Computed example of a mutant assay.
Amino acid sequence: MPDLDTGHLFLNFLVPIREGAPVNSPTSYEQNVRIELAKLPPPHQSPATINAKYNSPFSRNLRTHLVRMFVLNDVVYNGRNWMNPLIDVARGIDTVNPNPMDQLNCSYLVFAADIDAIEKDGDPLPKTLSPEAQKKVRLAYAALLWETMEAELQAIFCNCVGFSDNVTDEKSFGRYLERCHIETTMPFHDYYLKLPKFNNLPVVPLAAAIAIPALFTLTALAARIFGHFTLWGYNTLTLTALGAVITAVAAFGAYRFVIVNGNKPLAPGEYDDLPSVLKGLYVQQAFADFTIEAQGKSATDLHDAFGVFLKTHAPSNRNAPTQPPAVTCSLRNPGERGAVS
């Protein structure tokens, strides 16, 4: 199913950027978008940013696993489509002139995000969602972004077509993004601790369902060609036509089965939601510190220390203490890992 996989929505929005420039502005709308994107604080995920005052505005919510925004001026030309030069000459094709090239009608702001497919925080990740349910998730996510980073969104999207005239609140922002939504079938991540049961095709039964009536059809046709007008007491021409129809129906049914099976989303993993991922990162760091500190302890001291560890870090509680979004590690001070309240 487009967009949905492993309990997440993989969103893509292509938002057209206004042409020209604002009145009395030295920069174009497109350049303004680039400037505003460059002004967004980076996440604290590198030594250069880990002590920065501000974090990415997308870290203000607990649904965004990954997000990327950039300006797309035009599509890339991948070169001519391959053709046989002899056939080109025979058809009178001028190979000097290039093939027609796809081009965008304007520059676009690309907004791609991988989010938990939920309408409110704390909901379990869904195994499947109808198109209407997916739309509700997108609208809920747009409302969450507006609630947590309205100022940044206003600064970026005011340079896009129709935004200033139509967007005033979280609902209108959701409707605006919906108009720019395009479906994707390419997931961005994989959190599985163990691989799920994939939607494997029953290749042998599908092949048999087509091959058996096809073989019957060929047998009846061969009998007709070699002068046998009846087979098993039936007219071979009738048998050939009937077999061909059954083969065609079986082939179409197998094709539809393959398409439907391929559209099935994979089930979410046990710990695929963002709060669980953050908690896993936090416990991993805390346990690494505990392991180092526990070296050389007696069995009794180790048992007591592990009890303190469980009480302090609460591994079964995914909400607290935990890893903040968009940071490399849970830091209280530079170079020091510890619990986050």
Rank of each mutant, 00 (worst) to 15 (best):
K135S: 14
E119Q: 15
D123V: 09
K135T: 15
Y141S: 02
A142P: 03
P126I: 06
E152R: 02
K136N: 13
E150M: 08
N159M: 03
L129W: 08
E152I: 02
W146F: 11
F157L: 15
L129V: 07
Q134C: 10
P124V: 09
A142N: 06
A142C: 10
I118M: 08
D121A: 14
A155P: 06
C158P: 00
E150I: 02
F157Y: 14
A151T: 12
Y141C: 00
S130Q: 01
D121S: 13
F157T: 05
K136H: 10
L144C: 12
E147K: 15
E152Y: 00
L139E: 12
C158Q: 15
L125F: 01
L145G: 01
A155Y: 07
G122Q: 12
Y141K: 00
M149T: 08
F157I: 05
K136V: 09
K136P: 00
T148Y: 06
P126T: 07
P124S: 09
T128E: 12
P126F: 07
F157N: 04
A140L: 09
E119D: 03
M149P: 05
I156L: 02
S130A: 07
V137G: 02
E147N: 13
L144M: 13
A143E: 10
L145P: 00
L145E: 06
C158Y: 05
A133Q: 15
T148G: 05
A133E: 15
A133R: 11
K127H: 13
A151F: 05
L139V: 09
E147M: 07
K120R: 15
K135Y: 11
W146H: 06
Q134G: 07
Q134K: 15
L125H: 03
G122D: 10
I156R: 01
A151E: 11
A143V: 03
L145V: 01
R138M: 13
R138S: 05
K120E: 13
E150F: 00
R138G: 03
T148I: 08
A133T: 03
R138A: 08
E119P: 05
L139F: 12
K136C: 04
A155E: 13
L153P: 00
P126V: 06
L145I: 02
Q154N: 11
C158R: 14
Y141D: 06
K135I: 13
F157W: 10
P124D: 07
G122V: 13
A143L: 03
A151L: 05
I118G: 04
T128W: 06
K136D: 11
E147L: 08
L145S: 01
C158E: 14
E132P: 08
A151R: 10
A155L: 10
A142W: 03
D121F: 12
C158K: 15
L144D: 14
Q154D: 09
L125R: 03
K136M: 08
T128C: 04
E119H: 02
A142R: 03
A142L: 05
A155I: 07
D121G: 08
L144A: 13
A140W: 07
I156P: 01
I156Y: 00
A133C: 03
P126R: 07
K120A: 11
L153D: 00
A133D: 14
A140F: 06
E147R: 14
L153R: 00
I156S: 01
A142F: 04
T128G: 02
I118F: 03
K136A: 14
